[in-house]
Amino acid sequence: MPKKLYFIRHAETIENVRIEGLRNVGRSFQKFKAPQSSDLKLGARGLAGFAAGHTDAELSPKGKEQIQQLAEILEKEHFLENVTIMAHSPLVRAVQTCQGIVQNHTHVKIVELECLKEMTPGELTLMMNVPLKKRFQKFISWIEEQSNEETIAVVGHSQYFMRFLGLNYKFKNCDVWQVEYLGDGKFGSIEKMYSI
């Protein structure tokens, strides 16, 4: 039975800010300009965190605002009226984004799925594709087990969603995408619904 899935990327984290600082350093070097000291500091912290495998970053102040903005948009659009189950990654940024969206909607069952964790630095290499594919298969199995659910929301991570759906672009923080699930691990249309 086809299902409507909503994939929601978590709100901005401190790590997202640091990685953007690192990107800004790279852009400065490409233009043969000296990078700003604030970008150097942020970039160094982002690089150190990535190298150490830190993947459970806290939300930034902007991220907390994004959740509030998204919750208001979704409330206005009556988004949660047809959603009875929402899954999220166990990482704190996904948990907090999910909680901020659901708030007082007690009819929505919340489920934490280990298989939704963001991809690790190791999984970004070709050698680690097998564990990642196993996690994708667990997620598909979970979707198919929800036989009575026609509409499912999922809060997770950009790299994971991009690879899972076979896309060549990442979702922005707090983007909401509607994905048609046809069954047997096949997907139909993918359409952006809301963006902050």
Rank of each mutant, 00 (worst) to 15 (best):
V83E: 01
T84L: 11
A87S: 13
A87Y: 08
H88L: 07
P90I: 07
L91H: 09
L91T: 05
L91A: 12
V95N: 02
V95D: 08
V95W: 04
T97K: 00
Q99C: 10
G100Q: 11
I101Q: 01
I101Y: 05
V102D: 00
V102I: 15
Q103M: 13
Q103E: 13
N104H: 15
V108N: 05
K109S: 12
K109Q: 14
K109G: 05
E114H: 07
C115I: 00
L116S: 01
L116P: 06
E118V: 04
T120I: 06
P121R: 04
P121F: 03
E123M: 15
E123Q: 14
E123S: 02
E123G: 01
E123D: 09
N129G: 08
N129M: 12
V130C: 10
V130P: 03
P131I: 03
P131G: 12
L132F: 14
K133W: 09
K133T: 09
K134R: 13
F136I: 08
K138M: 11
K138I: 00
I140F: 01
E144W: 06
S147E: 13
I152P: 06
V154Y: 07
G156Y: 00
H157V: 03
Q159N: 14
Q159T: 13
Q159E: 14
F161E: 06
F164A: 09
L165E: 00
L167W: 14
L167G: 08
L167S: 06
Y169D: 11
K170N: 14
K172R: 10
K172F: 10
D175L: 05
Q178G: 11
E180W: 11
E180R: 14
Y181T: 05
L182E: 11
L182K: 13
D184N: 14
G185D: 04
K186P: 01
G188T: 08
G188N: 04
G188Y: 12
E191M: 13
